[in-house]
């Protein structure tokens, strides 16, 4: 059957790029278990001949990795929760209420989608310096407390929820707030979770802003903290560098694999949104 054989060929053809693509993660893990001498040897070995765990304890002694993760967790959760709240409220008004200026606000939100973050970084940095907020979790969270993307995504979803639900609820005398949080939010969970995952992953992966607003090692996030191992790499062992990287990156990989469906859903709706 020609169709089937051509499809089987697709699987075979995929093997090569898939192996190459997965290799960096595999090799990071492999090197993280190698003894110092083996990590440097040429030709390099695919798997450690005498796996050791010492690189992991060395990495944990070399830098406050748990603190980096705690900082990233506080910042990312903070951003996600505040973005969800502000986006739900704004999206509800845009999708379900008639008011003067609605079109204008919607246009404003779409315009905000297109503003690159670099244009805001210097003034936001100056505000944080002026307010003495450098090196705080607040500085990591505040500039991202509203999300045009979140508002737009939820606006689209809320618009598609049948009107009858709302009429039934208002006849019951439920206030707008109660309708929103007891009916609209629960039925919109797929979109809200998709946005939450997207928001968390984006916040967790930020680099430039955390780099400029944190100074002390104990306030560094995962992404900025991992750079410490890059600058010391020539002097220390590659096994330890890769162990530190593994500790810091594996939680993201696990989270991403577990939530990729939601992440993809959020992303594809964003593309549909931006495309008009």
């Amino acid at each position: 059957m020609p169709v089937f054989s051509s499809r089987l060929l697709a699987t075979c053809l995929l093997l090569v790029p898939a192996v190459l693509h997965g290799f960096p993660v595999f090799y990071m893990l492999s090197v993280s278990f190698k003894e110092a001498a083996e990590a440097y040897q040429f030709p390099p070995s695919l798997l450690p001949s005498h796996p050791v765990l010492s690189n992991y304890s060395d990495a944990l002694h070399a830098a406050p990795l748990w603190q980096f993760m705690l900082n990233s967790l506080i910042a990312s959760l903070g951003i996600t929760v505040v973005q969800m709240l502000t986006s739900i409220l704004a999206a509800y008004a845009l999708a379900r209420m008639e008011f003067k200026g609605r079109k204008l606000v919607l246009g404003f939100v779409v315009a905000m989608l297109m503003v690159p973050s670099e244009i805001t970084i210097v003034p936001n940095y100056l505000v944080m310096v002026g307010a003495g907020l450098i090196d705080t979790h607040f500085a990591l969270i505040a500039p991202f407390s509203a999300s045009a993307f979140g508002i737009f995504l939820l606006y689209q979803f809320f618009s598609g929820v049948p009107r009858e639900l709302e009429e039934a609820a208002t006849v019951d005398g439920a206030s707008r707030m109660r309708f929103l949080f007891q009916i609209l939010v629960p039925v919109s969970m797929p979109a809200i979770v998709a946005f939450g995952v997207f928001s968390f992953v984006s916040a967790w992966n930020q680099y430039l802003w955390p780099l400029v607003v944190t100074q002390s090692t104990s306030m560094r996030t995962v992404q900025v903290g991992v750079g410490m191992f890059r600058s010391e790499q020539e002097a220390t062992s590659w096994g330890m560098v890769m162990a530190a990287t593994s500790i810091l990156v594996l939680p993201s990989i696990a989270l991403f694999v577990a939530t990729q469906k939601q992440f993809v859903r959020g992303l594809v709706s964003s593309g549909a949104g931006v495309k008009g």
């Binding site: 992966n205 993201s252 992440f263």
Partner: peptide, 12 residues
């Protein structure tokens, strides 16, 4: 396998 790098940061 192809999507994992999307979930990690440029720094990682």
């Amino acid at each position: 396998i192809f999507l994992i790098p999307v979930g990690i940061s440029p720094a990682m």
